[in-house]
Design a protein around this nucleic acid. Sequence first.
DNA 1: TTGTACGCGTTATCAT
DNA 2: ATGATAACGCGTACAA
Lengths: 328, 328
Amino acid sequence: MATIRDVAKLADVSTATVSRVINGNGYVNAETKRRVTEAIDQLNYVPNDVARSLFKGRSKMIALFVPDITNPFFPAMARAVEDIANQRDFTFVLCNTDNDPAKESAYLNALQQKSADGFIIVSSSISDVQLQEIRVPMVALDRITGRSISSVTVNNRSGSRQAVQYLKSIGCKRIAHICGLEHADNAALRMRGYLDEVMDEDWFHSDYVVSGAYDIDTARTSAMHLLQNYPEVDGIFAGNDLMGVGVLQAAAALRRKVPEDVSVIGFDGITIGETVTPALTTMAQPIYDIGAKAADMVITQIEKGTSAVISEELPVRLIERESTKRKV
Amino acid sequence: MATIRDVAKLADVSTATVSRVINGNGYVNAETKRRVTEAIDQLNYVPNDVARSLFKGRSKMIALFVPDITNPFFPAMARAVEDIANQRDFTFVLCNTDNDPAKESAYLNALQQKSADGFIIVSSSISDVQLQEIRVPMVALDRITGRSISSVTVNNRSGSRQAVQYLKSIGCKRIAHICGLEHADNAALRMRGYLDEVMDEDWFHSDYVVSGAYDIDTARTSAMHLLQNYPEVDGIFAGNDLMGVGVLQAAAALRRKVPEDVSVIGFDGITIGETVTPALTTMAQPIYDIGAKAADMVITQIEKGTSAVISEELPVRLIERESTKRKV
DNA sequence: TTGTACGCGTTATCAT
DNA sequence: ATGATAACGCGTACAA
């Protein structure tokens, strides 16, 4: 690997001049510039990022923390972040935390040691105080922000209300909810939205809310119990699509027809919802936009050096598929 | 952020001594060591990784290149690589290349600039010559290696033969194949395996091989044409599970019953195969093991500094689900 | 056993 | 318009 000194020697100038040519700083004679550029080409010189980082204390690198890389929602989002990062010449690192505080801390430390410039964090297990300690731009997704951290979220609560209203509108009389991870803010918000719509119904029963872990398997188990114990349930709002798929599996196992016997709606809008049978109706999040917006915010903050706290809320929208049908 | 000098000053020793304590190198008096450790604790000192990298020319960072992060196969593999990397105290970076040579080059350059220590590459678009130019340990997955690059693969060809033999054994009389990306070595191998088994059959027809892009949508389209033009086909071997799902969708759209009218088998063993209806029979790869093995190989090479070329082949195994059934 | 001093490759400041 | 040089923070000869 050629260094800046090699280039300087070949072009018969000082390293300072080479640096100026590379970074377009200060004045440099056209002819000198030509010589330097030529030397750079000839030696195939590329500035060493590590040395740059050491000097600047910055690395042109941002990281995205996700709680479960096997939930297709997150790869989809990661792709957006990656696109924006690449466009703006940042290196993108994806970290899978498994909602494990230890892993999160480890990643956080490791990356801060590497002078990571910014973080986008989807996590319900990382503590607010720990987030405060991060000294670089950061955006939280899917978490209620204590006004101290920038965020990009969707209207979880009203979106959930919409989902439940939709179930009502197609004729569901007993609507249950599979709730996501307890300590996840968005799970709590979606449950709130559900409760907003059903709490005052005379049929409402607190056992109509069961828990899942935002994954297929736990949701299937929970839904089995629910459907067995409360056979009158004819509509289920799952806290995310993965759990919606779990509900479909539970219904199939119990020979309950979807959507004839029970309608199911999920939340997220991941593509797996189109591949299951029946295809899953869902409240779709603008996944790409969320990731892109978050990346844009972080990078802009990095580049401008501002630390303004911005919170953005994006809308969800209903996608009707086969798992819900109007009762005749 | 405290530096090594701050620690040295507080402990009243030289930076060299502090460095010795940190890295366990050379001799250092027990009492001195105590003082230094204390100072480290007190200042919350952590060595700066960037400075380390600059000095050593290494970064304790490995990268995994995958062609399509939205194919669940790759997140599953990434998780394995990540686990091993973390265990061995390496930072893990996941790069999604979209099979785009430009993106691959960009990532490769960017990461080499950052002194990445090793690469695990799943790619059919990156050229062999470009791989040769990488001066750090590297493992290729899913590609025929020119003996010059270490690799971890599965027995694609014999696995495919097994798949086709299985279809035959359950009574399929006309077996077609949805082939993956043309320039992908593993797609070619899987097609070879298929051809090994069917080429000499008197019913065989070259139009029984159609192409997909290793994704659901293209496979569905191809399968639609196939099933429409060749209604006698009663067994389909899809080059991967995603395409298997595409085939199921095509069959559903054409009201062809699976497995009664046509049996379908995929390749990969990703979980989405369990969620579709009917659940997809598949030749499952040991996904986690592949990633773990590759990570282990790269890191071992990095640490030992050896450059031996190792090629490992792992076995696939049949998982029977609902998309195939013995003809009576 | 410990300290001094240099180099890793870059950028920025200050001269010239 | 250009060059010399001091940082950035660390690890390691070499000297003591």
